[in-house]
Amino acid sequence: MSTEPQALPINRVGPVAQPGPVRGRRIGPYLVMLPALLFLLAISIAPLLYSLVVSLLRYNLMNPDRMGFAGLRNFQLILSSPDFWNSLLVTVEFVVIAVGLELVLGLGLALVLSRDVPGVGVFRSFILVPLALAPVVVGLLWRFMLNTESGILNWVISVLGFSRTDFLSNTTLALPIIALVDVWQWTPFMFLILLAAIQALPHEPFEAAAIDGASTRETILHIALPMLRYPILVAVLLRTIDAFRVYDLIFMMTRGGPVNATDTLSWSVYNNGFRNFNMGYAAALSWIILIIVTAVVTVFIRLLAGRAGETA
């Protein structure tokens, strides 16, 4: 059997099969894309550019008299503000804790539940329930459960003989607690992607490893994980982007507190934009977040591309 890749027939016949004048062939694809491009322009590109313009303005909705061009002043104010650096640190900590744990737990669950054992289907369905809940509801539920006096978690703690803990008013615990709530909700997402990837893996390498006497640990470390690296990177990338924008849980559970222990970048944007109506500042902050997220995404994509190159 030849190992030379077979090109798809459509690639060969494509140019030949398209009748009509050359100009028509050039314009045709663009005409087809035009509605989607216009839609994208209207709902995504235009607001993005508008927000860039706003970020260069001194623009408070409730003080229109002072509106004017401010150049990079908003960016300068942000970068010189200790609150911004605190928010950045808080956000990074949140992302690292939440996404890291979600990956470990999601991968572990996917490896365990990819096997055909009785009842696994029910368990798989059950594990997806948190994913179906609105983050606002999740935040509220956990806030109740963590309540010092009436929360079930503190009740369990007190039954076990420990003193009740005011989790959400503790500057050390509040952020990890919110990250854990995020883990509770989003681990199933990671699990779902990785389960699908595991189930799509070819059987042959595993069979060969088994014949060669590889242990389970060696099989996972040297066969499964390398083969899963792209799905893992994609899942981590998606969760990282999402975790960077965490807002709902903060809103429902701590509103940035205690002190400023959970004051994430998104919360800061909300505070400046919709509490203070300081749109110029909020837009500049949003652009800084976009730049940070883009940088992270670029690193991930480089990793993907690099690995792809290695494989080739």
Partner: peptide, 13 residues
């Protein structure tokens, strides 16, 4: 701040 010593647990929330 001193008076806060005489409040119930969880007062800061």
């Amino acid at each position: 701040a001193d008076m806060m010593k005489f409040t119930p647990p969880g007062i800061n929330d």
